[in-house]
């Protein structure tokens, strides 16, 4: 506090309109690079991948990675039990994993932000009801909750996204409500009321932009979490279904061949770990910069 914390993040210019504090340390370059790479893979998918991911090639079943004896540069990371190129499958997996995670974060974020705004700004009964529901959702372990929802709704990408949204919206709602409660007491919001603005424009023009940085930080952290959730569900057979490809699914499929072809499980496993750690590292760094008091 005192002098050092004088500059509140909402008060200065910079990338997100906020200011990264020196206290946040150096940016995690490796993690950022991985995140970017994954985003490129997800968006560019088909164009980068050397093969069509579910194209079977029975002449190259269970080919090991290029540097292992018997491997070839044609399949740098090897092939699976149907001779499908692992690299292409990883890239396709990145696409599905990241897009579902992104969609879930976006959907959960939107719902959570809207409810948090309403609760924080309107107060009263709306706030009481929304916050009780939020507490209930936050109290449940998210994997269990997800399993229950999948059991009820069924599998499929749309449902997976829905389920992931159901497990993450509450965190956004809680964050946004606390931001709103603090921002709405600030003079510029009072003055917007004096100016004659109605609640909705006040919420959208004055409150939301000032809460945006924290929401973005939470969003980045949430991508990692969403990837874990999707992989777990897919691994359990409750998530992405073949012929779609996902890292969790690939991990499950490769399990049977673990002893003869380690690369079937190691690559997807590594991809999950790297992706999750990178998004978390990036998120934590942003958080240290924008939210030194650990409100998120």
């Amino acid at each position: 506090m005192s002098a050092a914390a004088g500059e509140r993040p909402g008060d200065a210019g910079g990338l997100f309109g906020g200011r990264i504090r020196a206290g946040a340390g150096r940016p995690p370059l490796f993690a950022t690079a991985i995140c970017l790479l994954l985003v490129v893979a997800a968006l560019g998918g088909g164009a980068i991948a050397p093969y069509v991911p579910d194209e079977a090639d029975f002449t190259a079943i269970l080919a090991p990675p290029a540097w292992v004896e018997g491997g070839s540069l044609a399949h740098p990371l090897g092939t699976d039990q149907l001779g499908r190129d692992m690299l292409s499958r990883l890239i396709a997996g990145a696409r599905i994993s990241l897009l579902t995670a992104g969609a879930a974060v976006l959907a959960g974020g939107t719902v959570g932000v809207a409810l948090g705004l309403a609760a924080g700004y309107l107060g009263g009964v709306v706030e009481a009801v929304v916050m009780r529901v939020v507490d209930a959702f936050l109290a449940l372990p998210f994997i269990l909750m997800a399993l229950a929802f999948v059991a009820a709704l069924g599998t499929g990408i749309g449902n997976i996204i829905l389920v992931m949204m159901l497990t993450n919206w509450a965190r956004y709602a809680r964050l946004v409500r606390s931001e709103v409660v603090s921002i709405k007491k600030r003079d510029f919001v009072l003055l917007a009321r004096v100016a004659g603005l109605r609640p909705l424009p006040i919420a959208l023009r004055h409150i939301l932009p000032n809460a945006l940085t924290s929401i973005l930080v939470l969003g980045v952290l949430d991508v990692g979490r969403a990837i874990i959730l999707e992989s777990s569900l897919s691994f359990l057979g409750l998530g992405i279904q073949p012929p779609d490809v996902s890292w969790g699914l690939a991990l499950a499929e490769g399990r049977t061949y673990m002893t003869v072809a380690w690369w079937l499980t190691v690559w997807p496993g590594l991809a999950i770990v790297l992706a999750v750690m990178s998004f978390n590292a990036l998120g934590e760094w942003l958080k240290a910069g924008f939210d030194p008091r650990g409100r998120l």
Binding site: M1, S2, A3, A4, A5, G6, R8, G10, D11, G23, S178, V181, S182, I183, K185, R186, D187, R293, R295
Partner: peptide
């Protein structure tokens, strides 16, 4: 940061924004 904690202190011009509204 260590200096600011001990030898240097400042009262900022903006009282509302220097205090955290949530605490």
């Amino acid at each position: 940061a260590r200096l600011r904690g001990r030898d240097l202190a400042m009262v900022l011009q903006n009282p509302m924004t220097s205090l955290d509204p949530l605490y």
